[in-house]
Amino acid sequence: MLSVLLSRLRVEEKALLEELDRRHVAYEVLDTRTLAFRLDELDLPYQGALCREVSHHRAHYAARLLEHAGVPVVNSAAAIALCGDKLLTTLALRRAGLPTPRTLVTLTAEAAIGELPSFGYPAVVKPVVGSWGRLAARLSDDEAAQGVLEHRAALPGAHQHITYIQQFVGRPGRDIRGLVAGEEVLGAVYRTATHWRTNTARDAVTSLCPVDADLEKILLDTAAAVGPGVYGIDVLEDADGALYVNEVNHTPEFHGAAEVLGTGLADRYVNYVLDQVKS
């Protein structure tokens, strides 16, 4: 039997469960908010697990616990830990030689203020853990940077003070979301928005993005750099068309992509999961 880790059933989770139902795959939904693990009694009846938990920390620790009990999880705890942290992801991508936006990291928000004039504007500051563009801010000049970074310094939570700043790249209002399962590119879409944050959670509009050889290579190399799994990979284009890997999402949303690429995404996602848990 498969277990499905989740706490919030979004469009994607519904599509995946419908696909499992269609195939008559036995599964049990595990609500991460109510799970309890006794570490000396970890005898679980699952052949594998599909992790679709919306909370990064709950996803990571649930996957760790299941893997400790011998249950393979898609995506793995290691992939969740890596991709859930933007700094760790960037380090892995750079280690693999992939193009990423220039990045400035300081361990306090204040330390970034003095560095930004030489780093250059516009820049984007983001929490190392977080998604949907939440708390991401575009810094246009010293004055804006000082204001935003002083607010970041006042945020509770030590990890919010780890300051991750990227060069702002791109044709304003558009990025690419590529979906990869293992060594297969499932497809790609442009996400276009009037706001510089192009997340579909912020109502960006999707349209078909042709997957040429350059894009396919960057998507597959990115997936290889972070390890086997199903990923939503965000790619930026600069004015000359050069590609940069921005982020790798370990529990990808694909409702926007599915509107363009069709309903086969859940089918291929489930294919990959079932292949992984039976091997």
Binding site: R8, V54, V129, W132
Partner: peptide
């Protein structure tokens, strides 16, 4: 009522 969105929610 659904839970409020938490800081680490997302993709």
């Amino acid at each position: 009522l659904a839970p409020e969105i938490e800081e680490d929610w997302g993709e």
